[in-house]
Amino acid sequence: MSTPTVYRATRASRIAMIVAAFALIVLAAAPWWAGRADLRLMGEIFLYLSLACLWNLMAGYAGLVSVGQQAFVGFGGYMLFALTIFGGLHPITAILLAGLLAAVLSVPIASLIFRLKGAYFAIGTWVMAEVFRLTFAQISALGGGSGTSLPVGIVRSLASSRSGREALSYWLALGSAVLVIAAVYLFLRSRRGLALTAIRDSEVAASGLGIDIWRTKLEVYVVTSAFTAIIGGLIFLQKLRISPDAAFSVNDWTAFVIFIVVIGGIGTLEGPIIGTLLFFLLRETLADFGTIYLMVLGAVAIVVMLKAPKGVWGLIRDRYDLELFPLSYRIKLNDPKDI
């Protein structure tokens, strides 16, 4: 009698892990081999990658399609400024605390906007982000509508030299991307991740299995909000200047992130990575065209959504049956002759 074997890791996924480990070492050494501008660009890429992974977890896995994540990006940024300027905290402590505060704040927010279903939830999140923007614009201690800069003393507390600061902020970006990807991956592999996948496939069936849908979604929302705020803190640690319009920009922190995930492949872990690379490739080649570039981006996203809803990664996966992050279970039917 042959027993089928159930497994997750594939040859491709093992190779991918090894390649990723090497890549990580090379990337970690970037401050020694990359120029200043490249280092900055790479830092930005990692921060966008983190935002994309988080949005993908919400929209692609938990079905929480938000167009208001800029609320937490901006909140994280503003908390960095407020906690360092008024609280005297070290910037990194302030950013971690910002994540914690965002988690706390996201609970009452969720209890309100979770009342909105589907697409209305999306616009509800946008309203929340607007409330954040308008509120921070009222705080004159943080520069009101025109914003403020991070004082030199606080910037210096990170590292004394400019290159040291740039390296540190790059490592923080790289580290956060690795952390976010690993956390999302491990979460999806866990029991809760399984519950999430069940909800995505069928809410009715999932609740029949005893999964508390509301609670599972809330957990995802809270965790994503916290991480998003941390990334927001890191973004504005790189920028050193904040204003309500920049901090809560729907274009910068949501539109681009959505395009990244949609083009790369929503509901897959590989999608945001591919999407981020494609996005920056497009941006670096078309950026000179300004508005045209954004129109192209919008059009590409529409075409992808209509013609290949699982994105570029979905096309690759269907063609080659690849999975770099082994999430699904595979079954191998052992040939009786082997036994």
Binding site: V65, A119, N251, F259, T291, L294, I302, M305
Partner: peptide
């Protein structure tokens, strides 16, 4: 997702 993301893309196109 599709109507939401497609109209979102439209929004960006019209704006620009």
């Amino acid at each position: 997702l599709p109507p939401l993301l497609v109209t979102f893309g439209l929004s960006v196109i019209i704006q620009n």
